[in-house]
C-alpha cells in the first residue's frame, strides 16, 4: 500500500490469481464495464489469439474520496499458464490482496490446487507475511452443468472457512463485485490493524 500524503492518495494493488482459463481476465473486464469511465483507467489486456493472457491485464479504479484520501485501486491479473511462473511472481510483488479465481470444472481441480500451492510458494518467496494477508477465493463458472460441489472445491484447496469464498459466473458479471468488495474490505481491515500495531508503544526491554 502506497500513501501519498501530498496528493492525498492511497494506492493499493489487488492481483487476480488462478489457473489458466479460470476467468481472471473476465473478472477484470467485468469490473471495467461496471465502473464509470471517469472512475477508471483504460483496460490493458494482452491476450494471445487463444484468449490466453500473455503477461498481465491491468486497470486502475478510483473509489472517490474516502476518509480524506482518494484510494486508487490497481487491479492486475497474472497469466495462468504454467510456463509463466516467473511473470506471476513479478506481478504478485507488492500485492496488498489476492483474489484467487478457481475453476469449478471437475476436470480443472488439479490445476486449481497446483495454482493455489504456487500462490503461497510465491508469497513466501516474496517475503509477504501470510498471517492476515488478504486472500479471497472465487469459485467461478458455477453455471457449468457439471460444476464440482463447493465442499469438494473447498476441501481440495483446504479453504474450509479460512478465507472468504464467493460463487461466481464472471462471464455474466455474477459474483464479480462481491468478490472485489470482500478483497477491498479485507485489505483495508489489514491496513487498520497494521496501523494499530504500529501506533502501540513498544515494550521496553
Amino acid at each position: 500500500m502506497l500513501v501519498n500524503v501530498q496528493k492525498r492518495e492511497l494506492q493499493v494493488k489487488i492481483v487476480y490469481y488462478g489457473p489458466a482459463l479460470s476467468g481472471k481476465t473476465t473478472n477484470i473486464e467485468q469490473v471495467y464495464k461496471s465502473i464509470p469511465p471517469n472512475r477508471r483507467s483504460e483496460l490493458t489486456v494482452m491476450k494471445t489469439r487463444g484468449d490466453r493472457t500473455l503477461f498481465f491485464d491491468y486497470m486502475q479504479m478510483e473509489l472517490g474520496k474516502v476518509a480524506g484520501f482518494t484510494p486508487r485501486i490497481n487491479l492486475y491479473t497474472v497469466p495462468g499458464q504454467v510456463m509463466y511462473a516467473m511473470t506471476r511472481k513479478i506481478v504478485l510483488r507488492g500485492a496488498d490482496a489476492v483474489i484467487f479465481v478457481a475453476d469449478s470444472s471437475p476436470i480443472r481441480i488439479r490445476e486449481n490446487l497446483y495454482s493455489w500451492r504456487q500462490l503461497f510458494q510465491h508469497l513466501e518467496e516474496l517475503n509477504i507475511s501470510l498471517e492476515g494477508f488478504p486472500i479471497v477465493v472465487q469459485w467461478n463458472k458455477r453455471d457449468l452443468p457439471n460444476a464440482a460441489p463447493i465442499p469438494l472445491l473447498e476441501q481440495t484447496l483446504g479453504v474450509n472457512g479460512r478465507y472468504p469464498t464467493f460463487e461466481a459466473v464472471a462471464i455474466r458479471n455474477i459474483g464479480v463485485k462481491e468478490t472485489l468488495q470482500a478483497a477491498l474490505k479485507l485489505l483495508f481491515k489489514k491496513g487498520r490493524s497494521d496501523e494499530r500495531t504500529k501506533s502501540q508503544p513498544k515494550p521496553t526491554p
Binding site: L2, V3, N4, V5, Q6, L10, S34, I35, P36, R39, M61, L63, G64, V66, A67, G68, F69, P71, N173, K177, L180, Q181, L184, K185, F188, K189, G191, R192, E195
Partner: peptide, 26 residues
Amino acid sequence: PFPGADELPDDFEELEGFDLDAIWSN
C-alpha cells in the same frame, strides 16, 4: 515514499466500510 507519508489515513474504518455499489453501474 513521500515526505510525511507516515501520516496514514486516520480512518481505515471508513475505508473498510466502502460500498462498491456507490460506483458500480451494473
